[in-house]
Design a binder for these strands. Sequence first.
RNA 1: GGCCAGUUGGUGAAGCGGUCAACACACAUGCCUUUCACGCAUGCAUUCACGAGUUCAAAUCUCGUACUGGUCACCA
Length: 545
Amino acid sequence: MSNKEIADLIFPNVMDVKEILKKYKRKEKIMVTRYAPSPTGFTHFGNIYTAFINYVIAKQNNGICFLRIEDTDQKRIVNNGIQKIIDDLKKFNIIFDEGMIDEENEIGLYGPYRQSKRKEIYQSFIKDMIIKGIAYPCFCTEQDLETIRKVQENNKEEIGYYKKYAKCRNLTNEDIKKKILNNEKYVIRFKSAGEINKKITVADLILGKIEMPENIMDIIIMKSDGLPTYHFAHVIDDYLMGTSIVIRDHNWFTSLPIHYELFKVLNFPIPQYAHIAPVLINDNGTIRKLSKRKDKEAAISYFYENGYPVDAMMIYIATIVNSNFEEWFSIKNNNNIYDFKFSLDKISKSGPLFDKEKLNNISRNYIAKMNANDLYNNLVEWAKLYDKELYNLLIKYKEKSIKILNIEREKEHPRKDYCCYKDIKSYIWFMYDELFVNPDYELKIDNKEELENILTLFINNYNDETEDIWMTQIKNICNKLGYATSNKEFKNNTNNYKGNISDIMLILRVAVTSKKITFSLYEIMKILGKKEVINRIEKFLKHIQ
RNA sequence: GGCCAGUUGGUGAAGCGGUCAACACACAUGCCUUUCACGCAUGCAUUCACGAGUUCAAAUCUCGUACUGGUCACCA
Protein backbone atom coordinates (compact mmCIF):
# COMPACT_ATOMS: atom_id res chain seq x y z
CA MET A 1 0.00 0.00 0.00
CA SER A 2 1.40 3.37 -1.03
CA ASN A 3 1.76 6.64 0.79
CA LYS A 4 -0.55 8.15 -1.77
CA GLU A 5 -3.36 5.83 -0.74
CA ILE A 6 -2.93 6.77 2.89
CA ALA A 7 -2.83 10.45 1.99
CA ASP A 8 -6.02 10.10 -0.02
CA LEU A 9 -7.65 8.25 2.82
CA ILE A 10 -6.84 11.04 5.26
CA PHE A 11 -7.43 13.98 2.95
CA PRO A 12 -9.80 12.89 0.21
CA ASN A 13 -10.88 16.35 -0.91
CA VAL A 14 -8.06 18.83 -0.65
CA MET A 15 -6.64 20.95 -3.43
CA ASP A 16 -3.40 20.09 -5.12
CA VAL A 17 -0.42 21.98 -3.76
CA LYS A 18 0.45 23.20 -7.22
CA GLU A 19 -2.95 24.88 -7.50
CA ILE A 20 -2.36 26.74 -4.28
CA LEU A 21 1.10 27.85 -5.24
CA LYS A 22 -0.28 29.16 -8.50
CA LYS A 23 -2.93 31.19 -6.70
CA TYR A 24 -0.49 32.98 -4.45
CA LYS A 25 1.56 35.23 -6.66
CA ARG A 26 4.94 36.20 -5.32
CA LYS A 27 5.09 39.70 -3.98
CA GLU A 28 7.29 42.35 -5.54
CA LYS A 29 10.63 42.77 -3.89
CA ILE A 30 9.43 44.88 -1.01
CA MET A 31 9.72 44.50 2.70
CA VAL A 32 6.78 42.65 4.18
CA THR A 33 6.26 42.31 7.90
CA ARG A 34 3.33 41.02 9.82
CA TYR A 35 1.67 41.05 13.18
CA ALA A 36 0.07 37.74 14.06
CA PRO A 37 -1.80 37.68 17.37
CA SER A 38 -4.27 35.20 18.80
CA PRO A 39 -7.72 36.55 19.50
CA THR A 40 -7.75 35.82 23.22
CA GLY A 41 -9.54 38.98 24.19
CA PHE A 42 -6.58 40.37 26.08
CA THR A 43 -4.23 42.95 24.66
CA HIS A 44 -0.90 42.83 26.40
CA PHE A 45 1.40 45.83 26.53
CA GLY A 46 3.91 43.64 24.69
CA ASN A 47 1.39 43.07 21.90
CA ILE A 48 1.33 46.77 21.12
CA TYR A 49 5.11 46.85 21.40
CA THR A 50 5.51 44.02 18.88
CA ALA A 51 2.84 45.34 16.55
CA PHE A 52 4.43 48.78 16.60
CA ILE A 53 7.82 47.38 15.65
CA ASN A 54 6.41 45.39 12.76
CA TYR A 55 4.44 48.36 11.59
CA VAL A 56 7.10 50.99 11.88
CA ILE A 57 9.84 48.91 10.29
CA ALA A 58 7.67 48.18 7.27
CA LYS A 59 6.47 51.76 6.94
CA GLN A 60 9.92 53.25 7.14
CA ASN A 61 11.23 50.95 4.45
CA ASN A 62 8.36 51.50 2.02
CA GLY A 63 7.15 48.04 2.81
CA ILE A 64 3.83 46.67 3.93
CA CYS A 65 2.63 45.17 7.16
CA PHE A 66 -0.29 42.81 7.42
CA LEU A 67 -2.43 41.42 10.18
CA ARG A 68 -2.93 37.69 10.44
CA ILE A 69 -5.10 36.13 13.08
CA GLU A 70 -3.72 32.96 14.62
CA ASP A 71 -6.84 31.29 15.88
CA THR A 72 -5.88 27.66 15.57
CA ASP A 73 -6.40 27.03 19.25
CA GLN A 74 -10.13 26.66 19.46
CA LYS A 75 -10.14 26.64 23.25
CA ARG A 76 -8.71 30.13 23.58
CA ILE A 77 -10.89 31.95 21.13
CA VAL A 78 -13.04 34.67 22.57
CA ASN A 79 -16.07 36.43 21.12
CA ASN A 80 -15.13 39.57 19.21
CA GLY A 81 -11.49 38.87 19.90
CA ILE A 82 -10.44 39.97 16.44
CA GLN A 83 -12.39 43.20 16.62
CA LYS A 84 -10.78 43.94 19.97
CA ILE A 85 -7.29 43.51 18.57
CA ILE A 86 -8.06 45.77 15.63
CA ASP A 87 -9.65 48.41 17.84
CA ASP A 88 -6.74 48.46 20.26
CA LEU A 89 -4.23 48.77 17.46
CA LYS A 90 -6.24 51.49 15.80
CA LYS A 91 -6.04 53.54 18.97
CA PHE A 92 -2.30 53.48 18.54
CA ASN A 93 -2.60 54.43 14.90
CA ILE A 94 -1.45 51.05 13.75
CA ILE A 95 -3.42 50.25 10.64
CA PHE A 96 -2.51 47.40 8.39
CA ASP A 97 -2.16 47.26 4.64
CA GLU A 98 -3.54 43.77 4.43
CA GLY A 99 -5.41 41.36 6.60
CA MET A 100 -8.44 41.37 8.84
CA ILE A 101 -10.25 44.68 9.11
CA ASP A 102 -12.99 43.53 11.45
CA GLU A 103 -14.40 40.36 12.92
CA GLU A 104 -15.36 38.93 9.51
CA ASN A 105 -13.85 40.96 6.70
CA GLU A 106 -10.39 41.33 5.29
CA ILE A 107 -8.46 43.11 2.59
CA GLY A 108 -5.55 41.89 0.49
CA LEU A 109 -4.83 39.18 -2.04
CA TYR A 110 -3.09 36.70 0.17
CA GLY A 111 -5.93 35.59 2.40
CA PRO A 112 -7.67 34.19 4.15
CA TYR A 113 -5.86 36.04 6.91
CA ARG A 114 -7.39 33.95 9.58
CA GLN A 115 -5.76 30.61 10.15
CA SER A 116 -8.93 28.75 11.01
CA LYS A 117 -10.14 29.63 7.51
CA ARG A 118 -7.00 28.20 5.92
CA LYS A 119 -7.44 24.67 7.14
CA GLU A 120 -7.56 23.19 3.67
CA ILE A 121 -4.46 24.99 2.55
CA TYR A 122 -2.43 23.49 5.36
CA GLN A 123 -3.96 20.11 4.70
CA SER A 124 -2.95 20.24 1.05
CA PHE A 125 0.65 20.70 2.03
CA ILE A 126 0.42 18.02 4.66
CA LYS A 127 -1.06 15.59 2.18
CA ASP A 128 1.83 16.31 -0.11
CA MET A 129 4.27 15.67 2.70
CA ILE A 130 2.64 12.35 3.51
CA ILE A 131 2.97 11.30 -0.09
CA LYS A 132 6.62 12.27 0.00
CA GLY A 133 7.08 10.33 3.20
CA ILE A 134 8.12 13.29 5.35
CA ALA A 135 4.95 13.36 7.42
CA TYR A 136 3.00 10.58 9.02
CA PRO A 137 0.01 10.00 11.25
CA CYS A 138 0.73 9.32 14.88
CA PHE A 139 -1.72 7.46 17.08
CA CYS A 140 0.12 7.76 20.35
CA THR A 141 -2.04 8.60 23.32
CA GLU A 142 -1.15 10.91 26.16
CA GLN A 143 -0.12 7.89 28.21
CA ASP A 144 2.12 6.64 25.42
CA LEU A 145 3.90 9.95 25.35
CA GLU A 146 4.19 10.01 29.11
CA THR A 147 5.80 6.59 29.06
CA ILE A 148 8.34 7.67 26.48
CA ARG A 149 9.13 10.74 28.52
CA LYS A 150 9.82 8.71 31.64
CA VAL A 151 12.19 6.42 29.83
CA GLN A 152 14.03 9.39 28.42
CA GLU A 153 14.24 11.03 31.81
CA ASN A 154 15.72 7.88 33.31
CA ASN A 155 18.24 7.58 30.51
CA LYS A 156 19.02 11.29 30.73
CA GLU A 157 18.22 11.61 27.08
CA GLU A 158 16.67 14.44 25.13
CA ILE A 159 12.97 14.50 25.86
CA GLY A 160 10.54 14.37 22.98
CA TYR A 161 9.18 12.40 20.08
CA TYR A 162 12.05 11.58 17.77
CA LYS A 163 14.13 8.89 16.10
CA LYS A 164 13.74 5.52 17.82
CA TYR A 165 11.19 6.92 20.24
CA ALA A 166 8.95 7.95 17.37
CA LYS A 167 7.26 4.61 17.22
CA CYS A 168 4.50 5.63 14.82
CA ARG A 169 7.21 6.24 12.27
CA ASN A 170 7.44 2.52 11.86
CA LEU A 171 3.78 1.80 11.32
CA THR A 172 3.13 0.15 8.00
CA ASN A 173 0.61 1.77 5.71
CA GLU A 174 -1.62 -1.23 6.32
CA ASP A 175 -1.50 -0.60 10.07
CA ILE A 176 -2.27 3.03 9.50
CA LYS A 177 -5.23 2.28 7.30
CA LYS A 178 -6.62 -0.17 9.82
CA LYS A 179 -6.32 2.32 12.67
CA ILE A 180 -7.90 5.11 10.70
CA LEU A 181 -10.81 2.94 9.61
CA ASN A 182 -11.09 1.89 13.20
CA ASN A 183 -11.62 5.59 14.05
CA GLU A 184 -8.56 5.91 16.21
CA LYS A 185 -7.58 9.49 16.98
CA TYR A 186 -4.38 10.73 15.43
CA VAL A 187 -2.22 13.73 14.71
CA ILE A 188 0.16 14.28 11.82
CA ARG A 189 3.84 14.53 12.61
CA PHE A 190 6.71 15.80 10.59
CA LYS A 191 9.46 13.23 10.04
CA SER A 192 12.62 15.08 10.93
CA ALA A 193 15.91 14.17 9.30
CA GLY A 194 17.92 16.35 11.67
CA GLU A 195 20.94 15.22 13.67
CA ILE A 196 21.37 16.28 17.26
CA ASN A 197 25.09 16.89 16.95
CA LYS A 198 24.89 18.86 13.74
CA LYS A 199 24.70 22.59 14.03
CA ILE A 200 22.91 25.15 11.97
CA THR A 201 23.73 28.81 11.89
CA VAL A 202 20.73 31.05 12.15
CA ALA A 203 20.81 34.73 11.42
CA ASP A 204 18.68 37.05 13.47
CA LEU A 205 18.38 40.74 12.77
CA ILE A 206 18.37 41.53 16.48
CA LEU A 207 20.43 38.77 18.02
CA GLY A 208 22.97 38.34 15.26
CA LYS A 209 24.44 35.07 14.01
CA ILE A 210 23.88 32.20 16.35
CA GLU A 211 24.72 28.54 16.25
CA MET A 212 22.08 26.07 17.29
CA PRO A 213 21.68 22.31 17.11
CA GLU A 214 19.53 20.96 14.30
CA ASN A 215 15.97 20.02 15.00
CA ILE A 216 15.45 16.32 15.56
CA MET A 217 11.89 16.30 16.84
CA ASP A 218 9.02 14.83 14.92
CA ILE A 219 6.85 17.74 15.88
CA ILE A 220 3.12 17.70 15.42
CA ILE A 221 2.12 19.69 12.40
CA MET A 222 -1.58 18.90 12.47
CA LYS A 223 -3.60 18.44 15.61
CA SER A 224 -6.35 15.86 15.91
CA ASP A 225 -8.93 18.54 15.20
CA GLY A 226 -7.43 18.96 11.75
CA LEU A 227 -5.94 22.39 12.46
CA PRO A 228 -2.19 23.01 12.16
CA THR A 229 0.13 23.82 15.01
CA TYR A 230 1.91 27.15 15.15
CA HIS A 231 5.12 25.89 13.63
CA PHE A 232 3.52 24.57 10.54
CA ALA A 233 1.09 27.41 10.03
CA HIS A 234 3.92 29.90 10.41
CA VAL A 235 5.95 28.30 7.65
CA ILE A 236 3.08 27.93 5.22
CA ASP A 237 1.53 31.33 5.86
CA ASP A 238 4.65 33.40 5.91
CA TYR A 239 5.76 31.80 2.71
CA LEU A 240 2.45 32.19 0.89
CA MET A 241 1.85 35.67 2.23
CA GLY A 242 5.30 36.78 1.20
CA THR A 243 6.62 37.83 4.58
CA SER A 244 10.19 38.99 4.17
CA ILE A 245 10.98 39.67 7.82
CA VAL A 246 9.34 37.70 10.58
CA ILE A 247 9.45 40.01 13.56
CA ARG A 248 7.98 38.09 16.44
CA ASP A 249 8.20 37.32 20.09
CA HIS A 250 11.47 36.05 21.45
CA ASN A 251 10.00 32.82 22.74
CA TRP A 252 9.92 31.52 19.17
CA PHE A 253 13.64 31.83 18.89
CA THR A 254 14.33 28.42 20.34
CA SER A 255 12.01 26.84 17.79
CA LEU A 256 13.97 28.31 14.95
CA PRO A 257 15.64 24.98 14.04
CA ILE A 258 12.18 23.50 13.54
CA HIS A 259 11.18 26.33 11.26
CA TYR A 260 14.42 26.14 9.34
CA GLU A 261 13.95 22.47 8.67
CA LEU A 262 10.35 22.90 7.60
CA PHE A 263 11.25 25.67 5.19
CA LYS A 264 13.99 23.53 3.77
CA VAL A 265 11.88 20.45 3.38
CA LEU A 266 9.06 22.40 1.74
CA ASN A 267 11.51 24.09 -0.56
CA PHE A 268 10.53 27.58 0.54
CA PRO A 269 13.08 30.35 0.93
CA ILE A 270 13.74 31.15 4.55
CA PRO A 271 12.60 34.62 5.55
CA GLN A 272 14.70 36.91 7.67
CA TYR A 273 13.97 36.79 11.36
CA ALA A 274 14.00 39.29 14.18
CA HIS A 275 13.15 38.01 17.62
CA ILE A 276 11.99 40.57 20.11
CA ALA A 277 12.77 39.93 23.76
CA PRO A 278 9.79 40.31 26.07
CA VAL A 279 9.06 43.48 27.97
CA LEU A 280 10.31 43.02 31.51
CA ILE A 281 9.42 44.49 34.85
CA ASN A 282 11.39 45.00 38.02
CA ASP A 283 9.39 43.30 40.73
CA ASN A 284 11.07 44.26 43.99
CA GLY A 285 14.53 43.55 42.69
CA THR A 286 13.73 40.54 40.59
CA ILE A 287 13.43 41.11 36.90
CA ARG A 288 10.83 39.11 35.07
CA LYS A 289 8.49 39.18 32.16
CA LEU A 290 5.64 41.64 32.36
CA SER A 291 2.93 39.24 33.39
CA LYS A 292 -0.74 39.27 32.64
CA ARG A 293 -1.49 37.63 35.96
CA LYS A 294 0.76 39.65 38.23
CA ASP A 295 1.03 43.10 36.68
CA LYS A 296 -1.91 45.35 36.13
CA GLU A 297 0.26 47.31 33.69
CA ALA A 298 0.45 44.29 31.41
CA ALA A 299 -3.06 44.97 30.16
CA ILE A 300 -3.27 47.79 27.70
CA SER A 301 -6.68 48.55 29.16
CA TYR A 302 -4.95 49.66 32.35
CA PHE A 303 -3.63 52.66 30.50
CA TYR A 304 -7.01 53.52 29.08
CA GLU A 305 -8.57 53.34 32.51
CA ASN A 306 -6.00 55.64 34.02
CA GLY A 307 -6.13 57.96 31.08
CA TYR A 308 -2.66 57.94 29.67
CA PRO A 309 -2.76 59.81 26.37
CA VAL A 310 -2.21 57.34 23.58
CA ASP A 311 0.40 59.58 22.01
CA ALA A 312 2.37 59.64 25.22
CA MET A 313 2.23 55.85 25.24
CA MET A 314 3.56 55.86 21.72
CA ILE A 315 6.46 58.07 22.70
CA TYR A 316 7.22 55.74 25.56
CA ILE A 317 7.02 52.67 23.37
CA ALA A 318 9.29 54.35 20.85
CA THR A 319 11.86 55.00 23.58
CA ILE A 320 11.96 51.38 24.60
CA VAL A 321 12.07 50.14 21.03
CA ASN A 322 15.18 52.17 20.24
CA SER A 323 16.73 53.79 23.24
CA ASN A 324 18.42 56.44 21.14
CA PHE A 325 14.95 57.69 20.32
CA GLU A 326 14.67 59.43 23.67
CA GLU A 327 17.49 61.85 23.07
CA TRP A 328 16.42 62.51 19.51
CA PHE A 329 12.93 63.28 20.63
CA SER A 330 14.01 65.63 23.38
CA ILE A 331 16.03 67.65 20.89
CA LYS A 332 13.47 67.60 18.11
CA ASN A 333 10.68 68.40 20.51
CA ASN A 334 7.14 68.10 19.18
CA ASN A 335 8.28 66.15 16.18
CA ASN A 336 6.37 63.28 14.74
CA ILE A 337 7.79 60.09 16.16
CA TYR A 338 7.71 58.55 12.70
CA ASP A 339 10.39 60.99 11.59
CA PHE A 340 12.79 59.01 13.68
CA LYS A 341 14.44 56.17 11.82
CA PHE A 342 13.83 53.03 13.82
CA SER A 343 16.13 50.10 13.38
CA LEU A 344 15.97 46.47 14.36
CA ASP A 345 19.58 46.18 15.41
CA LYS A 346 19.09 48.81 18.09
CA ILE A 347 16.38 46.77 19.79
CA SER A 348 17.51 45.42 23.12
CA LYS A 349 18.56 41.78 23.00
CA SER A 350 17.61 41.11 26.56
CA GLY A 351 14.34 42.98 26.61
CA PRO A 352 13.40 46.47 27.71
CA LEU A 353 12.35 47.04 31.28
CA PHE A 354 8.97 48.59 31.73
CA ASP A 355 9.68 51.74 33.71
CA LYS A 356 6.55 53.39 34.96
CA GLU A 357 8.38 56.42 36.29
CA LYS A 358 9.62 57.10 32.83
CA LEU A 359 6.23 56.63 31.24
CA ASN A 360 4.77 58.98 33.81
CA ASN A 361 7.40 61.54 33.05
CA ILE A 362 6.81 61.33 29.33
CA SER A 363 3.10 61.54 29.85
CA ARG A 364 3.48 64.50 32.20
CA ASN A 365 5.47 66.39 29.63
CA TYR A 366 3.02 65.47 26.95
CA ILE A 367 -0.02 66.64 28.86
CA ALA A 368 1.79 69.81 29.90
CA LYS A 369 2.24 70.72 26.26
CA MET A 370 -1.43 70.34 25.31
CA ASN A 371 -3.49 73.46 25.08
CA ALA A 372 -6.36 73.77 27.54
CA ASN A 373 -9.01 73.12 24.92
CA ASP A 374 -7.49 69.87 23.78
CA LEU A 375 -6.88 68.80 27.32
CA TYR A 376 -10.50 69.56 28.13
CA ASN A 377 -11.76 67.52 25.21
CA ASN A 378 -9.51 64.59 26.04
CA LEU A 379 -10.46 64.73 29.66
CA VAL A 380 -14.15 64.80 28.83
CA GLU A 381 -13.75 61.81 26.57
CA TRP A 382 -11.93 59.92 29.30
CA ALA A 383 -14.27 60.95 32.11
CA LYS A 384 -17.27 59.91 30.08
CA LEU A 385 -16.09 56.33 30.37
CA TYR A 386 -14.33 56.28 33.70
CA ASP A 387 -15.56 59.09 35.98
CA LYS A 388 -19.19 60.07 35.60
CA GLU A 389 -19.08 62.65 38.39
CA LEU A 390 -16.20 64.51 36.79
CA TYR A 391 -17.79 64.16 33.41
CA ASN A 392 -21.00 65.85 34.52
CA LEU A 393 -19.11 68.75 36.05
CA LEU A 394 -16.96 69.20 32.97
CA ILE A 395 -20.02 69.35 30.76
CA LYS A 396 -21.97 71.60 33.10
CA TYR A 397 -19.13 74.10 33.53
CA LYS A 398 -17.32 73.93 30.25
CA GLU A 399 -15.89 77.46 30.16
CA LYS A 400 -14.85 77.38 33.76
CA SER A 401 -13.28 73.94 33.36
CA ILE A 402 -11.17 75.07 30.47
CA LYS A 403 -10.01 78.03 32.53
CA ILE A 404 -9.12 75.72 35.38
CA LEU A 405 -7.15 73.44 33.11
CA ASN A 406 -5.41 76.46 31.69
CA ILE A 407 -3.95 77.60 35.00
CA GLU A 408 -0.21 78.12 34.62
CA ARG A 409 -0.37 76.42 31.25
CA GLU A 410 0.15 79.16 28.71
CA LYS A 411 3.77 79.78 29.43
CA GLU A 412 7.07 78.51 28.21
CA HIS A 413 7.38 75.95 30.96
CA PRO A 414 3.92 74.85 32.02
CA ARG A 415 3.24 72.85 35.13
CA LYS A 416 3.62 69.10 34.94
CA ASP A 417 1.16 67.99 37.56
CA TYR A 418 -0.86 65.50 35.57
CA CYS A 419 0.64 62.29 34.35
CA CYS A 420 -2.71 60.87 33.34
CA TYR A 421 -6.30 62.04 33.14
CA LYS A 422 -7.19 60.16 36.27
CA ASP A 423 -4.80 62.38 38.23
CA ILE A 424 -6.48 65.60 37.32
CA LYS A 425 -9.46 65.44 39.61
CA SER A 426 -7.30 65.32 42.72
CA TYR A 427 -5.80 68.66 41.68
CA ILE A 428 -8.94 70.54 40.72
CA TRP A 429 -11.90 69.13 42.61
CA PHE A 430 -12.17 72.08 45.01
CA MET A 431 -12.85 74.41 42.11
CA TYR A 432 -16.33 72.94 41.82
CA ASP A 433 -18.85 73.89 44.51
CA GLU A 434 -20.42 70.47 44.21
CA LEU A 435 -17.23 68.88 45.49
CA PHE A 436 -15.90 71.59 47.77
CA VAL A 437 -15.73 70.89 51.51
CA ASN A 438 -14.03 72.79 54.29
CA PRO A 439 -10.77 71.39 55.66
CA ASP A 440 -10.68 69.16 58.70
CA TYR A 441 -7.19 69.91 59.92
CA GLU A 442 -5.54 72.53 62.14
CA LEU A 443 -3.69 75.55 60.84
CA LYS A 444 -0.40 76.99 61.96
CA ILE A 445 -2.09 80.17 63.09
CA ASP A 446 -4.96 78.87 65.11
CA ASN A 447 -5.63 82.15 66.84
CA LYS A 448 -9.20 82.66 65.68
CA GLU A 449 -9.16 86.39 66.15
CA GLU A 450 -6.09 86.71 63.97
CA LEU A 451 -7.66 84.53 61.32
CA GLU A 452 -10.72 86.67 61.34
CA ASN A 453 -8.69 89.82 61.08
CA ILE A 454 -6.75 88.58 58.15
CA LEU A 455 -9.72 87.22 56.29
CA THR A 456 -11.97 90.22 56.86
CA LEU A 457 -9.27 92.58 55.78
CA PHE A 458 -8.90 90.51 52.67
CA ILE A 459 -12.61 90.45 51.93
CA ASN A 460 -13.01 94.17 52.48
CA ASN A 461 -10.27 95.04 50.06
CA TYR A 462 -10.82 92.27 47.56
CA ASN A 463 -9.63 93.18 44.10
CA ASP A 464 -8.53 90.67 41.46
CA GLU A 465 -8.28 93.04 38.54
CA THR A 466 -4.63 92.20 38.02
CA GLU A 467 -2.24 90.01 39.91
CA ASP A 468 -0.23 93.05 40.97
CA ILE A 469 -3.20 94.79 42.49
CA TRP A 470 -4.29 91.58 44.18
CA MET A 471 -0.81 91.11 45.57
CA THR A 472 -0.63 94.66 46.81
CA GLN A 473 -3.81 94.17 48.80
CA ILE A 474 -2.28 91.18 50.51
CA LYS A 475 0.91 93.03 51.22
CA ASN A 476 -1.19 95.76 52.79
CA ILE A 477 -2.60 93.20 55.16
CA CYS A 478 0.91 92.12 56.01
CA ASN A 479 1.94 95.65 56.79
CA LYS A 480 -1.12 96.32 58.88
CA LEU A 481 -0.80 93.19 60.98
CA GLY A 482 2.96 92.99 61.25
CA TYR A 483 3.87 90.31 58.74
CA ALA A 484 6.84 90.46 56.40
CA THR A 485 5.91 91.13 52.78
CA SER A 486 8.55 88.88 51.27
CA ASN A 487 10.57 85.84 52.13
CA LYS A 488 13.79 87.75 51.88
CA GLU A 489 12.63 90.46 54.23
CA PHE A 490 11.41 87.89 56.70
CA LYS A 491 14.64 85.91 56.57
CA ASN A 492 16.76 88.98 57.12
CA ASN A 493 14.74 90.45 59.98
CA THR A 494 12.82 87.57 61.46
CA ASN A 495 12.52 89.22 64.85
CA ASN A 496 10.75 92.25 63.51
CA TYR A 497 7.75 90.28 62.34
CA LYS A 498 5.15 88.02 63.82
CA GLY A 499 5.03 86.08 60.61
CA ASN A 500 5.57 86.04 56.93
CA ILE A 501 3.44 86.70 53.89
CA SER A 502 3.45 82.97 53.27
CA ASP A 503 1.49 82.52 56.50
CA ILE A 504 -1.17 84.86 55.26
CA MET A 505 -1.22 83.11 51.92
CA LEU A 506 -1.65 79.77 53.59
CA ILE A 507 -4.71 80.95 55.42
CA LEU A 508 -6.26 82.38 52.29
CA ARG A 509 -5.41 79.24 50.39
CA VAL A 510 -6.95 76.94 52.93
CA ALA A 511 -10.04 79.09 53.32
CA VAL A 512 -10.68 79.22 49.61
CA THR A 513 -9.47 75.81 48.45
CA SER A 514 -9.32 73.81 51.68
CA LYS A 515 -5.89 72.64 50.53
CA LYS A 516 -2.46 73.73 51.73
CA ILE A 517 -0.87 73.17 48.36
CA THR A 518 -2.37 74.35 45.12
CA PHE A 519 -1.32 76.08 41.98
CA SER A 520 -1.49 79.89 41.72
CA LEU A 521 -3.95 81.22 44.27
CA TYR A 522 -4.49 84.35 42.25
CA GLU A 523 -5.65 82.38 39.24
CA ILE A 524 -7.88 80.25 41.39
CA MET A 525 -9.59 83.27 42.85
CA LYS A 526 -9.85 84.94 39.49
CA ILE A 527 -11.73 81.94 38.16
CA LEU A 528 -13.94 81.50 41.18
CA GLY A 529 -14.78 85.20 41.15
CA LYS A 530 -15.20 87.69 43.96
CA LYS A 531 -18.59 86.49 45.03
CA GLU A 532 -17.60 82.88 45.40
CA VAL A 533 -14.30 83.69 47.08
CA ILE A 534 -16.02 85.82 49.71
CA ASN A 535 -18.69 83.22 50.10
CA ARG A 536 -16.08 80.54 50.78
CA ILE A 537 -14.17 82.70 53.22
CA GLU A 538 -17.32 83.45 55.16
CA LYS A 539 -18.17 79.78 55.24
CA PHE A 540 -14.66 79.04 56.45
CA LEU A 541 -15.00 81.55 59.26
CA LYS A 542 -18.18 79.85 60.37
CA HIS A 543 -16.51 76.48 60.02
CA ILE A 544 -13.71 77.33 62.47
CA GLN A 545 -16.04 78.68 65.13
C1' G B 1 18.78 19.10 33.32
C1' G B 2 19.68 20.32 27.69
C1' C B 3 19.80 24.48 24.34
C1' C B 4 20.01 29.92 23.72
C1' A B 5 20.69 34.80 25.36
C1' G B 6 21.84 38.65 28.86
C1' U B 7 24.79 40.96 33.12
C1' U B 8 27.26 49.04 32.79
C1' G B 9 25.12 54.10 38.93
C1' G B 10 19.08 54.27 43.02
C1' U B 11 16.34 53.30 37.90
C1' G B 12 16.10 52.98 32.35
C1' A B 13 20.21 52.96 29.39
C1' A B 14 24.42 54.89 25.51
C1' G B 15 28.90 52.85 24.33
C1' C B 16 30.97 47.88 19.54
C1' G B 17 39.56 48.57 21.13
C1' G B 18 42.27 54.62 22.53
C1' U B 19 41.17 61.64 26.48
C1' C B 20 37.46 62.93 32.84
C1' A B 21 31.99 56.09 30.92
C1' A B 22 26.76 59.96 26.98
C1' C B 23 21.70 60.98 27.91
C1' A B 24 17.12 60.61 30.61
C1' C B 25 14.38 59.52 35.09
C1' A B 26 14.83 59.51 40.31
C1' C B 27 17.31 61.62 44.48
C1' A B 28 20.04 65.64 47.26
C1' U B 29 21.49 70.78 47.99
C1' G B 30 21.18 75.88 46.63
C1' C B 31 18.86 79.99 43.91
C1' C B 32 14.07 81.93 42.29
C1' U B 33 9.36 82.12 44.88
C1' U B 34 2.64 83.37 48.21
C1' U B 35 2.43 77.17 48.94
C1' C B 36 3.34 73.58 45.27
C1' A B 37 5.21 73.26 40.71
C1' C B 38 8.11 75.18 36.65
C1' G B 39 12.99 76.93 35.74
C1' C B 40 18.17 77.59 36.74
C1' A B 41 22.82 75.90 39.15
C1' U B 42 25.50 72.05 41.53
C1' G B 43 26.23 67.01 43.30
C1' C B 44 25.40 61.72 42.48
C1' A B 45 29.63 54.74 38.65
C1' U B 46 38.05 55.98 40.50
C1' U B 47 34.49 52.02 37.27
C1' C B 48 31.23 48.59 33.55
C1' A B 49 28.94 40.62 37.67
C1' C B 50 33.62 37.87 39.04
C1' G B 51 38.41 35.45 37.50
C1' A B 52 42.04 34.75 33.81
C1' G B 53 43.96 35.69 28.83
C1' U B 54 44.99 38.67 24.05
C1' U B 55 46.87 43.90 23.35
C1' C B 56 51.22 49.48 23.92
C1' A B 57 45.86 50.12 25.24
C1' A B 58 39.65 46.38 27.15
C1' A B 59 33.18 48.23 29.61
C1' U B 60 34.38 46.98 24.55
C1' C B 61 37.86 40.78 21.84
C1' U B 62 38.62 35.28 23.88
C1' C B 63 37.92 31.54 27.64
C1' G B 64 36.09 30.00 32.48
C1' U B 65 32.77 30.87 36.88
C1' A B 66 28.46 32.97 39.08
C1' C B 67 23.80 34.99 38.66
C1' U B 68 19.34 36.44 35.76
C1' G B 69 15.97 35.52 31.84
C1' G B 70 13.79 32.63 27.73
C1' U B 71 12.55 27.76 25.89
C1' C B 72 11.92 22.46 25.85
C1' A B 73 2.76 21.00 24.76
C1' C B 74 -2.45 18.12 20.14
C1' C B 75 -0.75 26.96 23.44
C1' A B 76 0.28 30.43 20.46
